[in-house]
């Protein structure tokens, strides 16, 4: 289980990185950040990049900052950065809650937020966060920079709107407004495993009434997404157990679950309803 040969190109700046990518992407070149998904797939010889453009040495990519109402997460910000809240509001707290579900402690020291977004695994927690909270992805190339909405970003299992010569330079996550509540729940076979289903819920609490309701699911379909029919059931309502159960049922009915030899669509459909209910319970804590 040894990777195939490749040429290694360490980049020292974002400009150098995109220049290298422009040169090598057409020759099977790929970006490596944390590598916690890429290196295993290379070891299993499922991926054979001929060139790796290593962005770990790009100083500006390691920053996380708040800017214009967004939390801006650079390309090499590690999962472990979120072990403590990166901003004092509800988003910071939510990300800290979510990060403990991502793989294991040593993996989180190395893997990156943006890497998860670029990899777009259906079971990625960060992808669910991005899809549910409406993140914007900043893609950079020698041609310039463009911003991609979450609704456009995910294009199926491990597929994104990123072009071959583009690098995901940063992700902009909108801060949750004051008074927001958010909860997350996932079910996996063992601690640290890929989830069989997960849900993220968020809303603004307006004197007991739920506003700007967001319900997202991950690990259920080919990509994470918001379940708008369920959100509509809660918008402007009081968060009662019955209302939440109805929303959970609407989620179960709306999803088109992935199946595998272990897991039927029926099981995932049930499970995602449970995940929604438990995510609400988490948010209520």
């Amino acid at each position: 289980m040894k990777a195939g040969s490749f040429e290694w190109h360490p980049a020292r700046s974002a400009d150098e990185a995109v220049a290298l990518l422009a040169e090598y992407a057409p020759q099977d070149g790929r970006v490596i950040a944390g590598g916690q998904s890429l290196v295993p797939s290379m070891a299993l010889r499922l991926a054979f990049p001929s060139h790796l453009i290593d962005i770990n040495g790009v100083e500006e990519f390691s920053r996380v900052r708040v800017e214009g109402g967004d939390l801006v997460i650079g390309a090499c910000v590690r999962h472990a950065a979120f072990h403590a809240p990166v901003e004092p509001g509800p988003l910071g707290r939510l990300l800290t809650q979510v990060v403990h579900n991502i793989a294991h402690y040593p993996i989180r020291q190395r893997g990156t937020f943006c890497g998860s977004l670029a990899n777009a695994d259906p079971a990625s927690e960060w992808c669910l966060v991005a899809a549910t909270l409406g993140a914007r992805m900043v893609a950079r190339s020698v041609r310039g920079e463009r911003v991609i909405e979450a609704s456009e970003w995910f294009q199926g299992i491990m597929t994104t709107a990123l072009e071959e010569d583009e690098l995901l330079a940063e992700v902009r996550l909108p801060l949750l407004p004051a008074g927001s509540r958010a909860g997350f729940y996932e079910f996996s076979r063992r601690a640290g495993d890929y989830a069989l289903a997960m849900a993220l819920v968020a809303w603004r609490d307006d004197g007991g009434t739920m506003r700007e309701v967001r319900i997202g699911t991950g690990s259920v379909e080919v990509q994470p997404r918001r379940i708008t029919v369920a959100e509509a059931l809660l918008e402007g309502r009081v968060a009662s157990p019955d209302a939440i159960a109805a929303a959970a049922a609407a989620v179960s009915a709306d999803v088109d679950p992935l199946e595998d030899i272990h897991t039927t669509a029926d099981y995932r459909r049930d499970l995602v309803g449970t995940a929604v209910r438990r995510a609400y319970a988490q948010a209520g804590d």
């Binding site: 290694w8 360490p10 590598g35 290196v39 295993p40 070891a43 472990a80 040593p106 190395r110």
Partner: peptide, 12 residues
């Protein structure tokens, strides 16, 4: 920081 040394290349 504890890391998996099988998930990094020595050059890194």
């Amino acid at each position: 920081a504890p890391v998996r040394s099988c998930l990094m290349f020595a050059v890194q």
